[in-house]
């Protein structure tokens, strides 16, 4: 995407610069309209956009939660200024500000909020999704390898917003089992 856009930018700037050539360009009204407006103004962006859109939808499709037998469900509830995560195996089991997930498996986070709007965002795992009062939004995330990731709230929520963050710990299969049992 960056390369295409840089190319377009350079192209437009070149056209702009060339218009300052001292020689007459001999563009007449009619031929000018055909070349500049229909060719460059209509067809050129349309083609680029179509490609881009197809690409975007394709990627977007892959990021979406799909019913999948193997998914772990975790509820995430934001409040000013913390996050509470509850795990599907036991609704009473919950953690504050630390999200435990299994690595290498898709996880559906069911996001909501107890007060104002927040946004759930783990930059290295997926895009962000908002926590909206009265609504539950589901975000599919997946960590390829065990480890710790930073999670942030990405919607301004008042004075504690700067440090409204959480940690994500992705466990290998055994650790995950241990986490589930150890906590129970």
């Amino acid at each position: 995407m960056f390369i295409t856009f840089t190319a377009i930018f350079v192209f437009v700037m070149a056209l702009l610069a060339l218009s300052f050539r001292p020689v007459g360009n001999g563009v007449s009204q009619a031929s000018g309209e055909r070349l500049w407006i229909i060719g460059l103004g209509l067809i050129f962006p349309a083609v680029i956009l179509l490609c881009l859109l197809a690409y975007g939808l394709w990627i977007g499709e892959r990021l979406l939660p799909r019913s999948d037998a193997d998914v772990t469900r975790i509820e995430a509830e934001a409040r000013r200024w913390s996050w509470r995560f509850s795990y599907e195996n036991d609704p009473r089991r919950s953690t504050e500000n630390v999200l435990h997930i299994p690595a290498g498996r898709p996880v559906d986070i069911e996001i909501t909020t107890a007060d104002v709007i927040h946004s759930f965002w783990v930059p290295r795992l997926a895009g962000k999704l908002d926590a909206i009062p009265g609504h539950v939004n589901v975000l599919r995330i997946e960590a390829d390898a065990p480890g710790t990731y930073t999670g942030l709230s990405a919607e301004f929520s008042g004075h504690g917003y700067d440090n409204h963050s959480f940690a994500v710990i992705a466990h290998g299969p055994e650790d995950w089992q241990k986490f589930l049992e150890g906590e129970q």
């Binding site: 056209l15 702009l16 218009s19 360009n25 000018g32 500049w36 460059l40 103004g41 209509l42 349309a46």
Partner: peptide
């Protein structure tokens, strides 16, 4: 999907204007 498509679509009339302006510069002597 719909709004994403529609949002990128605004690039077309914007491009028409931008190229009409650059074409104007080619037509004249800026």
């Amino acid at each position: 999907a719909f709004f994403s498509a529609a949002s990128t679509l605004v690039a077309v009339p914007t491009a028409v204007q931008v190229f009409a302006w650059i074409g104007t510069m080619w037509k004249g002597t800026p």
